[in-house]
Design a binder for these strands. Structure first.
Lengths: 217, 217
DNA sequence: GTTAAATCGATATTAAAGTATCGATATAAC
DNA sequence: GTTATATCGATACTTTAATATCGATTTAAC
């Protein structure tokens, strides 16, 4: 039976899949041909059953006694995650964060191609950052339509976050990867993925405080 | 009755608290004196009951019919999150990402003070980035001990991530904020907070793919 | 005062995620 | 071949998080 196209997969599971991929790439580099859930779990500090269930959710089954064939597993994960065909994205905000995102080479292996950047700063417009052109923000809508870009990456100061998001929406961007700490107001058809450092920091701080209480420095 | 010091609070709840704080700061700026869960929820696209429960988990109670007093709520949240007294952190990796983190002013309001940076690049050592000194990596352990720094921020290329993490651990850092995509191997006493872009991207891509299936562009 | 409306808090319910158990199966050792 | 072992898959169970319900409480209107 064919698996439904719009598969139900939980967000926690989805977030773990790239970790498995990373581990498997390393294992493949070390010449390993087969892995079991036990191996993967040990390498990533997880429990075997969770790995097995996650892979099953991604439509991947193993064989008893043997486990999974490493190259097959890798390509199955890549296919499931859509890493074969690159999605084009436009980045808005050519500051330090924008440069960091442009400079991260990994995205190209993870299905994302940041093709260009947009900014308002005349000193940056017309230049290049990590080999990618910096355009004036008012060219955004036109270029999105011309090139069929669906993803907008928001790396602007928080004061202009909502405004730039609205420019993206008007240009018919379908998904926004939001690196600002602003909670964006968007129509329900637009996908917003928040990258909230404040939230992560809160978790880190609380865990550290608890750890210090148990064993003070 | 006094609330236990090491309170049990769920990670999802903890991650939402900074969002409430941000919303409340905005509300306070607009001159609002009281808010209800209903207001907060509407502003953040959540449901009132979740807001109420989250605030209760943070030890904050409201009054029927009135809700919460905005300034009190803000300072209660800040106290709960430990944003009053700054924790010092050292950043390793003075690349674009490191610069982006150093340039983000918000951390100082969120209990984090990135006091200096470390790198191996002789061209960067001795200089400053966003007003913060860049030191040679081999000074790390010494300065950590001298200044009682507990948090290390890891923003290095993935190839050296584990090595630098081990330098941090040997220097008696207690928590690592990990911006690399490497799954670090650390002793259980060390807290690692992963900031995994690949995971987020996987979620974004899958949601976008599903959205496109429902209503193609 | 009395009544009406909004909101909270406590308790209960539902949904989701994580974990355990156990029989089935494929390989390797003998 | 036969047996032992590692591993998977299916099902069941537990834990955690999210959501709903409803009585209690406070304020504002009349």
């Amino acid at each position: 039976m064919v698996r439904k196209n719009v598969a139900r997969i939980s967000v926690p599971t989805l977030r773990r899949l790239p970790m498995y991929h990373g581990y498997l790439k390393k294992a493949a580099g070390q010449g390993r041909a087969f892995v079991s859930c036990t191996h993967i779990a040990a390498g990533l500090h997880l429990v075997p059953i969770q790995v097995r269930k996650d892979l099953h959710s991604a439509g991947i089954d193993g064989k008893p006694r043997v486990g999974y064939e490493v190259p097959v597993l890798i390509s199955s994960l890549e296919k499931f995650l859509g890493w074969n065909n690159l999605s084009k994205a436009y980045l808005v905000g050519a500051g330090d964060l924008g440069a960091a995102l442009l400079g991260y080479r990994g995205f190209n292996d993870q299905g994302l191609d940041i093709v260009a950047t947009f900014d308002n700063d005349p000193r940056k417009i017309g230049g290049k950052i990590h080999g990618k052109n910096v355009y004036a923000l008012d060219k955004f809508a036109d270029l999105v339509k011309r090139n069929g870009v669906l993803i907008g990456i928001l790396a602007v100061p928080r004061g202009v976050a909502q405004d730039v998001a609205e420019i993206m929406i008007r240009a018919r961007i379908r998904a926004i990867w939001n690196f600002t700490s602003v909670r964006l107001l968007v129509p329900p058809s637009i996908i917003v993925q928040d990258e909230n450092l404040a939230s992560s920091l809160a978790v880190l701080s609380k865990r550290l405080a608890q750890s210090l209480q148990r064993s003070p420095s």
